[in-house]
Design a protein around this nucleic acid. Structure first.
Lengths: 345, 345
DNA sequence: TTGTAGGCGTTATCAA
DNA sequence: TTGATAACGCCTACAA
């Protein structure tokens, strides 16, 4: 049987399509209570379900949110293997659903713009994770839909933003190590790009060092990718190459886990020989043995906040300056990978 | 500036909208080469992008795939914390994108049907992960779009399916333990529901036991949820309650990791005191220390296969019986959590 | 309070 | 080979 349309409902209820449309859109006080009930009854009986394509077409609103996440260079697969993104999506989806939106999840092919998708689908807004080339953002602006950037330091009033104070986070992590008596602290990190979160964490690291009167040595910085493998390599390297380092700050948990594994594989112990602190607090960090001391950000909440901000922007159109950007709090989660070495035992 | 429509393009190229539509849809040999070029030129110049809402409306095809994943009971958040699902999505999204589809990711509220979404959005098909109440599937059938069920043993010709041979997997895992000299093997698992994957793995466990002439003891089965916490509890319990068990088969890596942690926390060693084998081979399993011996299924590929199958069903309409179901291969990945105890040392 | 009718951007049928 | 034009399902002035 053909799907019921608004016309069927109208006929069934003995009214016009306009009237049905009114009640569908909740126009107050325009339709008599009696008619409203008749219409609801017809809707029930016919199993009528509104067609969003048609609504989008006329309203130019789709109740659809685009969510873009980075993908691996090579296999183009989404970076969902990074639990960080999964958790974000989870938060976004829930909030979006609660507010009556659906999300279209997608990666974006290299060099291709996202413009097509957003225009084609009449997206009401988009949430972008990861960082891209300048051009990408410029194109995005042309679509003229609200966009929230997650963890981006792009300076452009056009975009809404949600993130954390990465510099403070980096500072917090490093200070935690310093307070535990460490003086020679390596930084293992993804690539330090201008305006990226990693750069800020790096700044925080240097700041904590400076504040403690410690010497910043560029040779203690191991920059590569935000992967377990990178951590692994450096962990091995560190434990096999004596350079009197006692602690490492990894700018992502995934890296930290690699570092630890690398060290353990090469016969060292954590935290007895090396202290390690991570960043993010992804679920594995609690599970891992030893469980990882890290800087916690509430990732799921971050996703929810991003969705809420976006939807607010979509629906209210006009957001006051201060609310255009939301910053989440950070905490040091002490677990088992940092040892206080100032207490002699 | 208003977005260009097909009319603008037609006017700009000096032809009718019908002609533009022809070339847009690649109708062969209907339009002269000359006209085709004129139209492409106009499209370029006007930055014309097709509006999918309009297309969906008339074609009743949206090039949109629904992807449903389970959510946690309480917080309703998507089960994306389970890396298993993230990887699947990743595979689905990539394949879908390659084939010109987008995915709408969503959980489904308890008791609510997915019917609404699929009808509202004119979904071309859907991929369902997790298992739901009977009613849910019945409703789904009414939408009359192709649906692929992932890891489901629902017996209904209507649905397409992709999965693995879970019974064989359970058998493989248990046999691996047995071959390593273990005779008293506990099973730690999520809830064994009729027609669920867990039930099949459980069957495989029993089969391997039987085949080896070992006694199956219901007391060695610890059934609860597919969570790290459940594993943790049982790990502790096992190591604190002597019952001459030497190995455990956990029906999910997440559980296995919990078991190991529980044992280690209570002073036992893995694999010296207990051998543990998992199932799935999620990324953490390789990272974890000790790294987990497990049954590997190529999760990303599973997602890709699911998407490919679905799209094929959508586009060809008529799939021959045998191709309606795809089974992926399984492998034992030997790592560090199983010890051969038949070799005395 | 309700109905009429035009239009949203596209496709597709039928003529030309 | 191309062009009018009627749908598709819905919304919304405007009229009644």
């Amino acid at each position: 049987m053909r799907k019921a349309t608004i016309k069927d409902v109208a006929k069934h209820a003995g009214v016009s399509t306009a009237t049905v449309s009114y009640v569908l859109n909740g126009v107050e006080g325009k339709v008599s209570q009696e008619t409203v009930e008749k219409i609801y009854k017809a809707i029930k009986e016919l199993n009528y379900i509104q067609n969003f394509s048609a609504v989008s077409l006329v309203k130019k609103k789709s109740r659809l949110l685009g969510v873009i996440i980075p993908q691996t260079e090579d296999c183009k697969q989404l970076l969902l293997e990074n639990p960080f993104y999964s958790e974000m999506i989870s938060g976004i989806e829930l909030k979006a659903r609660e507010m009556g939106y659906h999300i279209i999840l997608s990666g974006v092919d290299k060099g291709q713009s996202y413009l097509d998708v957003s225009v084609q689908r009449d997206l009401d807004g988009a949430i972008i994770m990861g960082i891209y080339q300048e051009r990408f953002y410029e194109e995005l602006k042309n679509v003229k839909i609200p966009i929230v950037l997650v963890d981006s330091y792009i300076h452009d009033k056009y975009f809404y933003k949600v993130g954390i104070d990465d510099e403070f986070g980096g500072y917090l992590a490093t200070r935690h190590l310093i307070r535990n008596g460490h003086k020679k602290i390596a930084l293992v990190t993804g690539s330090i790009r201008k305006d990226g979160v990693v750069e800020k964490r790096f700044l925080g690291y240097k700041k904590a060092l400076r504040e403690a009167g410690l010497f910043y040595n560029p040779d203690d910085v191991f920059e590569n990718s935000v992967t377990y493998q990178h951590g692994l390599k450096i962990g091995r390297f560190l434990s096999e190459t004596p350079r009197n380092i006692t602690a490492v700050f990894a700018t992502a948990d995934l890296i930290a886990l690699g570092v630890i594994r690398g060290m353990i594989e090469t016969g060292k112990r954590v935290p007895e020989d090396y202290s390690v602190i991570g960043f993010d607090d992804i679920p594995i960090s609690r599970i891992f043995i030893p469980s990882l001391t890290t800087i916690k950000q509430d990732i799921g909440d971050k996703g929810a906040k991003a969705a809420a901000l976006l939807i607010q922007a979509i629906e209210e159109k006009t957001l006051s300056e201060p609310t255009r950007e939301v910053l989440l709090t950070l905490d040091v989660i002490e677990r088992q990978t940092v040892k206080n070495i100032s207490i002699k035992d």
